[in-house]
C-alpha cells in the first residue's frame, strides 16, 4: 500500500472549543490511483490531504507511507519524505512572486541538489509538458490564473514524484482552463504517478478513478469509477 491512514483523527483547539477536523479516518490509496476528495466546505478534505502529504501530523492514529509509520517522524524526516516522493499543487497557485516560471519550477530541483544546467533543462521540459513552452521567463504576474496553476503543476512533476497532491487546483480558474489542468493531471496519472486531488466540482471529479466523499470529518462514501477519457496530448496543449 502506498498511503494508508489508520484511525486518523485531527483535533483543533481544546476542551469546549475542540473541533475534530478528521474523526478516525480509514483511507488506503494504491500506486497509480487518481483519487478525488470531495465534500462540503469544512468537512476535512484539506486536512486529510495535508496529512497524506506529510505537511501536517495526525492528533491520533497512524499514517503509513509505503508501509512506514510516520507518527514518530521529526520535521526534517517529514521534509525529506516530501522531497523524495511528493509533489504539491495548492489552491491559489502558490508560486514565488517576481520569480520567473522556469525558476519556480527549478526550485524543487535546487533543494534536491541537481546541477544548475540539468535543472534548467528539466524545468523547461516540465513546462513544455504542461503546455507552457515559450512562457518560461514570464513572472507569475504576467501569466493567467490557469497558466500559473500549470506552472505549479510543472513544479510538482519536475522531480518525478510518486504522488502529486493537489488542493483545489482548479479553484481559481474558469471551466475551460480547469479542463486543461485536469488533462495535464490525467496524463501524469497515465504515466504512473498517483494523484490525490481535493475538489468541489463534480465535473472535475469525473477525471478521477475514485471519489472519496467527506462530511464532518468522516468519510461517507468511497466509489471507484471509470475516469473520463481525455483527448490526445496535442489536443490538450492546444
Amino acid at each position: 500500500m502506498l498511503m494508508s491512514m489508520q484511525r486518523v483523527s485531527k483535533l483543533y483547539g481544546e476542551g469546549e472549543s475542540e473541533i475534530a477536523a478528521l474523526r478516525e479516518i480509514e483511507l488506503q490509496i494504491d500506486t497509480g490511483e487518481f483519487v478525488a476528495l470531495m465534500g462540503p466546505s469544512g468537512s476535512g478534505k484539506s486536512t486529510c490531504l495535508n496529512i497524506l502529504g506529510c505537511l501536517d501530523v495526525p492528533t491520533r492514529g497512524e499514517y503509513l507511507f509505503q508501509d512506514v509509520p510516520t507518527s514518530r517522524f521529526d520535521n526534517d524526516q517529514r521534509a525529506r519524505l516530501r522531497r523524495r516522493f511528493l509533489g504539491f499543487v495548492f489552491q491559489g497557485f502558490n508560486l514565488l512572486p517576481r520569480t520567473s516560471a522556469v525558476e519556480n519550477v527549478e526550485l524543487p530541483l535546487m533543494y534536491r541538489g541537481v546541477h544548475a544546467r540539468v535543472r534548467r533543462a528539466r524545468a523547461m521540459e516540465a513546462l513544455a509538458q504542461v503546455g507552457l513552452a515559450g512562457r518560461e521567463h514570464h513572472s507569475p504576474a504576467q501569466l493567467s490564473g490557469g497558466q500559473q496553476q500549470r506552472v505549479a503543476i510543472a513544479r510538482a512533476l519536475v522531480t518525478d514524484p510518486a504522488v502529486v497532491l493537489a488542493d483545489e487546483p482548479t479553484g481559481n480558474v474558469d471551466t475551460a482552463r480547469a479542463r486543461e489542468i485536469m488533462e495535464v493531471l490525467t496524463r501524469l496519472n497515465q504515466r504512473g504517478i498517483t494523484i490525490v486531488m481535493v475538489t468541489h466540482e463534480a465535473d472535475m471529479a469525473l477525471y478521477a478513478s475514485r471519489v472519496v466523499r467527506f462530511l464532518d470529518g468522516g468519510i461517507v462514501s468511497d466509489v471507484r469509477q471509470t475516469p473520463l477519457a481525455i483527448a490526445t496530448a496535442e489536443g490538450a496543449a492546444a
Binding site: A79, R82, L107, T159
Partner: peptide, 16 residues
C-alpha cells in the same frame, strides 16, 4: 512566511 511555506512543501529542509 507564505514563501517559506511553499519552499518547505516543495522540498526545502529547515536548514535550507
Amino acid at each position: 512566511t507564505r514563501e517559506i511555506g511553499i519552499r518547505l512543501a516543495i522540498g526545502a529542509l529547515g536548514r535550507d
